[in-house]
Design a protein around this nucleic acid. Structure first.
Length: 363
DNA sequence: GAATCGTACACAATGGGCTT
DNA sequence: AAGCCCATTGTGTACGATTC
């Protein structure tokens, strides 16, 4: 069955219509013996993709609805909408709006897109969507519960679309590790074709063995993204108390980031950086609502932050508006002002390394 | 014996349902 | 309204199994 599916995919050429490519169920959707499948890739019929966004494998919610990233609290379509100028208008379980912790930060009120419109918009801007795995045995939706994983034929996909110059792993290091493990020999044979993104420390660690033969060679950049999963909560977004318990004492303990703006910032910088709406968006850190703990002095400010974007922005509650302020860097740092979406000043190591825990294993 | 790989488990933050 | 509990999933660490 797997061989048959891969063969079927290999004969697909670029004339394949979007309607066919966005078909909700691949032949692997329904599998027996507890196996779970995957969805067909999303690629525009006429627009050559420049970026491939790779998840690990669709969650149970996504498989159930035959659509990518369908969990309501998953940030993928909200971030895509903020970057490309639309609002996610499709949800599951009778929900009609985005969950609270995302809704407060969404940029665009209109237009509201259904799933098909969102796919059309995303792929027409040159973004392709697929997963690393075509099949696995998985209890629930946890990547860590995946067993007997079988990979999609990504080498053939990349050969079919040579315009792809960037791969973004949407599920964090999890999907990237599956990619590295499953395609280990392929990556070894084509090490000079790929390189870690220069502004992506996680990728530089995992893919340190990859790189071009010389400076002029064009490579496919590999980016390990902040996972769009609602369960992924980077340390920078933990509560101040939780961070201090772990031994951190840097700027993130003083002003923990709100989850959605923090993730969106990285996606804007690494994945959607060439989009006009992204370049016009207020930089991360410029709005007090980007942080979990507002400065008390900011709560009473009447000054407004006026984004330069002409798009219809979601009004921010008065309480959350604040003047542009300098990010509170640690006292040992030199004074730095964040420029919109340039270098990542947020990847700062904790001034006090967290103590190594010695855990007693319980079986 | 050392290195690598695979697996198991604890922990993290948040939404949402249910109960009080 | 507040509190409790469960489900959601990625990450880090420990440890056994396998390979070199």
């Amino acid at each position: 069955m797997i061989v048959a599916t891969i063969s079927l995919f290999l004969v697909v050429d670029r004339s394949l219509s979007l309607a066919m490519l966005k078909t909700t169920k691949s032949p692997h959707f329904i599998l027996d013996k507890g196996k779970k499948g995957s969805l067909a890739p999303l690629v525009h019929a006429e627009i050559a993709p420049h970026t491939l966004i790779l998840g690990t494998q669709p969650s149970d919610n996504s498989l159930k609805h035959g659509s990518y990233y369908m969990t309501n609290a998953n940030a993928f379509w909200h971030i895509a909408g903020d970057a490309l100028g639309f609002r996610r208008g499709f949800h599951i379980d009778n929900r009609t709006e985005a969950v609270d912790f995302i809704r407060a930060h969404i940029f665009h009120q209109n237009p509201i897109y259904n799933y098909e419109q969102a796919v059309e918009k995303l792929t027409s801007r040159g973004y392709a969507v697929w997963d690393v795995l075509i099949e696995s045995e998985r209890k629930g939706s946890l990547d860590s519960d995946i067993k007997n994983a079988i990979g999609n034929d990504l080498p053939s996909f990349l050969a079919m679309y040579p315009t792809i110059n960037k791969i973004c792993f949407a599920s964090g290091a999890s999907s990237a590790r599956f990619f590295a493990r499953i395609h280990k020999s392929y990556l070894a044979e084509n090490a000079h074709v790929f390189k870690p993104h220069p502004d992506n420390p996680a990728s530089q660690v995992l893919f340190s063995h990859l790189g071009p033969k010389n400076d002029t060679q064009q490579c496919i950049q590999l980016c390990i993204m902040e996972s769009v999963s609602p369960a992924a909560n980077p340390r920078q977004t933990w509560t101040t108390e939780a961070q201090r318990r772990k031994g951190f004492s840097d700027q993130w303990t003083q002003r923990p980031a709100a989850v959605y703006p923090y993730k969106r910032d990285q996606w804007f910088r690494l994945c959607y950086n060439r989009e006009p709406a992204v370049m016009a968006a207020p930089a991360f850190g410029s709005l007090d609502s980007h942080f979990r703990t507002p400065l008390s002095s900011d709560l009473f400010s009447n000054e407004q932050v006026t984004p330069s974007s002409s798009s219809s922005l979601t009004p921010i509650p008065k309480k959350m508006n604040s003047p542009l302020h300098e990010f509170p860097l640690p006292s040992t740092s030199t004074t730095t002002t964040k420029k919109p979406h340039d270098e990542n000043i947020f990847d700062v190591a904790p001034s006090t390394p967290p103590p190594k825990k010695k855990r007693i294993r319980q079986r």
